[in-house]
Design a protein around this nucleic acid. Structure first.
Length: 419
RNA sequence: GUGAGUGUAGCUCAGGUGGUUAGAGCACCAGAUUGUGGCUCUGGGGGCCGUGGGUUCGAGUCCCAUCACUCACCCCA
């Protein structure tokens, strides 16, 4: 147990970390172009922040939160998603008093207690963005474009963008009632989950995957017939702008996201070839959330993307992320004097910005050469007692396989110029 | 929370119907010229056979439990 990461968590090892950095860089650069600024919020928050904003009746709050109380008896929760914290920070630091809209992005670990499976972890990582202060459908379109540009920047193809409108507090209650009315006589045929959803959140019945529920859902009223005129217009505008910006999408009137705070736009990006957990990201508009968290009414939109799933999708589609490997110099030495001089040499190289290393295990020259090969050294400096006496060093090119003697004094400058 | 599958060396896996000191490939270390990597050859170190219990003269192998991993359901990223 001591040497085992907890269930649903894992180490990101050297060799894989490079991919994470590459994705982070793609996202950071993109966000900069869109004028979004990075925010880093705590990894845990007051439990109430999540239960209030995400919604008491959601699966996340109901059964997936890592909640604990600290020594001061405060109930705290490891964040299961990023939007709530961002909203909290927006309010706490009165960002609404600055130039609007406020555009923010984040990157970091999230936590949900769930059975792990392919593409699902208890600690997973999301990169996401939020924009406060604009209810314009242009903002929705911008947000979706940012997400899609990220996927394209990472090299992903074959993604499907699904979009829907879930209405607003003006029209949703009536629609909710409409669903209840039409499904009432079939209520006992719904799955147990949907039976309780009937009371708590009948919209969620619509995207239930149970065969029986799906059949019953055929007679459910279409949401588009029940949106208020504002919501209809907003949705149509979003679709219009997306088309204008060359973002293709598929309207899915059954799409209902698992968080309660969404209003109007809801969207999800899925990789159809991925497997069971094929949702790479999702988001939507949440015009009531800031108010729910104690602020004055402020519209907002955002999305979150699952890093592990993006990585999985890249792997499955055989797409390599680009990252440069720095050429490396290995200093091989023979004898204690040369070893000491070699240590100086290595440090000088490093201070000149050249990646370098030497052997500390007192290994034979042969073993040092082997090691040089393994760490991917492009060149090896061989320094023995003989060379040391002559004030020279052997410079070996590991790719070509040839070598020559060079003055020890000029070797650093020489290599600095090459690199 | 529910279901199915799998746990043997660092990794990938062999080990018919229970029978002596548990194997291979790769990896690792050393050697094949007293100072030179990749290829080859030789040798070497490494295994509470997931854990606990049971059946048996005898269990890696059979039974039970437990834990872990994997996949799926649910839900989501």
């Amino acid at each position: 147990m001591l040497a085992k990461a907890p269930r649903g968590t894992r180490d990101i090892l050297p060799g894989e970390v490079e991919k994470w950095l590459a994705l982070e860089n793609i996202f950071r650069n993109l966000c900069e172009k869109f004028n979004y600024r990075e925010i880093r919020t705590p990894i845990f928050e007051h439990t109430e922040l999540f239960s209030r904003s995400v919604g008491e009746d959601t699966d996340i709050v109901g059964k997936e939160m890592y909640t604990f109380s600290d020594k001061g008896k405060r109930s705290l929760t490891l964040r299961p998603e990023g939007t709530a914290s961002t909203v909290r920070a927006f309010l706490e630091h009165k960002m609404y008093a600055q130039a609007q809209p406020t555009r923010l992005f984040y990157f970091g670990p999230m936590f949900r207690y769930d059975r792990p499976q392919a593409g699902r972890y208890r600690q997973f990582h999301q990169l996401g963005a939020e924009a406060f202060g604009s209810a314009s459908p242009e903002m929705d379109a911008e947000m979706i474009t940012l997400a899609m540009d990220f996927f394209h920047g990472a090299g992903l193809k074959q993604l499907s963008l699904e979009i829907n409108s879930v209405g607003c507090p003006q029209c949703r209650p009536a629609y909710r009632e409409e669903i209840r009315k039409t499904l009432e006589q079939n209520r006992i045929d719904l799955c147990p989950d949907c039976q309780s959803r009937f009371d708590t959140n009948p919209l969620r019945i619509l995207d239930c995957k149970e065969e029986g529920c799906r059949e019953i859902n055929l007679q459910a009223p279409e949401i588009f017939d029940h949106l208020c005129s504002y919501c209809v217009q907003h949705f149509e505008d979003v679709l219009y702008y997306l088309k204008l910006l060359d973002i293709s999408c598929r309207v899915n009137s059954k799409l209902v996201r698992g968080l309660d705070y969404y209003t109007n736009t809801a969207f999800e990006i899925v990789d159809t070839g991925l497997g069971s957990q094929n949702s790479l990201g999702g988001g939507g508009r949440y015009d009531g959330l800031v108010e729910t968290c104690g602020g004055s009414p402020t519209p907002g939109v955002g999305f979150a993307i699952g890093v592990e799933r993006v990585l999985l999708s890249l792997e499955q589609q055989n797409i390599q992320l680009e990252f440069e490997e720095e050429p490396r110099i290995f200093v091989a030495t023979l004898g204690p004097k040369a070893s000491t001089r070699g240590l100086q040499l290595v440090m000088e190289l490093r201070r000149r910005g050249i990646a370098a290393e030497k052997d500390y295990l007192d290994r034979s020259l042969k073993a040092q050469m082997k090691q040089a090969d393994r760490v991917g050294a492009s060149r090896v400096l061989i320094l023995g007692e003989e060379e040391l006496e002559k004030g020279r060093v052997v410079l070996r090119d590991m790719v070509k396989g040839d070598q020559k003697e060079v003055e020890l004094e000029i070797i650093i400058d020489m290599l600095s110029n090459v690199h």
